[in-house]
Design a protein around this nucleic acid. Sequence first.
RNA 1: GGCCCCAUGGUGUAACCGGCUAACACGCAGCCCUCUCAAGGCUGAGAGCGCGGGUUCGAGUCCCGCUGGGGCUACCA
Length: 486
Amino acid sequence: MSSPVRVRFAPSPTGNLHVGGARTALFNWLFARHHGGVFILRIEDTDLERSQEAYTRAILDGLRWLGLDWDEGPEVGGPHGPYFQTQREGLYREAVERLLREGKLYHCFCTAETLETMRQDQAERKVAIKYDGRCRALGRAEVERRIATGEKFVLRLRCPEGESVEWEDLTKGRLSFTSDLLDDLVVVKSDGMPTYNFAVVVDDVGMKITHVIRGEDHISNTPKQILLYRAMEAPLPRFAHIPMILGKDRARLSKRHGATSVIEYEKMGFDPEAFRNYLALLGWAPEDHTQELLSREELFARFTLDRVSSHGAIFDLDKLTWMNAEYIKRFSPATLLARLRPWLAQIPGFPGGFDDAALAKMAGLYRERVKTYNEILTMADWFFIEPATFDAKGLEKAAKIGGARALLAKLIDRLQTAGEFTEGPLEGLVRSFAEAEGRKFGDVVHLCRLGLSGRTATPGLFEVMAVLGRERTLARLGRFLTSCPA
RNA sequence: GGCCCCAUGGUGUAACCGGCUAACACGCAGCCCUCUCAAGGCUGAGAGCGCGGGUUCGAGUCCCGCUGGGGCUACCA
């Protein structure tokens, strides 16, 4: 409440937006919105080997799909840019020069091979594996000479000994490490690029980040970063480490558990709001946890870090699917139609002469039947593609009632003279027709359903007829006559 | 190996600073409704809170140990 809250989501463009990353972004976003603070997006692309621009776009698209808008970052800019680490080299260089001047860094000429044998040796002796500091004591003259000969080097931070590094984590409580276990960490790589831990700290300081909210896999990076804050004499932000998202086997969520990137869920037909709502509840619960369906505003109002749980959460597709269905059920037919359109457009016959009113009515019929948008493809395609074949079980049942074809012919006649072609009157008509014919209402209904859709399961028959309209209904039933059991 | 984090039904969570038949939701089973499928309504099974010790009149909640799971241990982020 004193200084304005500034948080950030800092993905590396080495892949699509992952559900774990999305959840971290979400918690940062909710925290910022709850406090009326600033949500910053920063792209950590210092790994030149693996970073790709296409992934940056994919990540931005993923965040946009989820509705997580950032106040500073790519595309929107802001007063603390640039927001790509590769464009912040000057800032890292300045920081490095200062630390170097203050004697807090030193040159290390160790090659990958010498480090490797050092580690092997340490492993054999069963001691902590860390850089032994052999280049710490190199004299100025030797350093200059070796640089002049073109020898490759990295810059390392001098790590204090026997110090306790601790902080009050907002979700985990007091955490403490001893500096003895910490390496003299590399700050600048031999290619001149800053390392992750260093760039993060320089940027978080430069961007005036007040709260670092990230996955708990970063807990062990925190003491290293705190040492960097100290070396830079910069004020420490608050840290909050949130639990990981796991697969069914409690291992970190990965491809073998199924879909891991957010766009895959979009493709599976999940609604972004439902997905976001579900994600918010993974590792967090509001004070009144009996309400699970939470709007954006409700999430903003209720989100606090002290209610974040401290253990990993298994991603449950069933519950996500349920929640998605709950959202769909609450849409108006027109809204649902709008969401469904991209999927419906994939059906070959779409829109098949239906006007928007009819389409909206049709969408409404699936509001309580479809759990994800993509299901509409297999459930409602027959509206647009007239059935050429009919469900075998359905035909069997039709055969059992006896005289189905004649019955159908009579019904067609009767429908021809029907008045209003809407569900109420149609149902009345069929009921009295069945009674007059001495037939079971259900038998007549099932026969019609089969003829109109080729299936045994559809939304209510009379609603379906109303959507199809008189012409289509009569035409389809007429053609069904030839396939209909006598 | 070392360091760190975690542990409530199958899953996500709740249970305020120790005091209830351990609650809610998903999933599951049954019943009802019904033209099918859904949706909806009702009912039910499912944890004694990882295990073992303490502390206390009383512990899922505090302490210790153990076990199990996870993370980190890079010139990757």
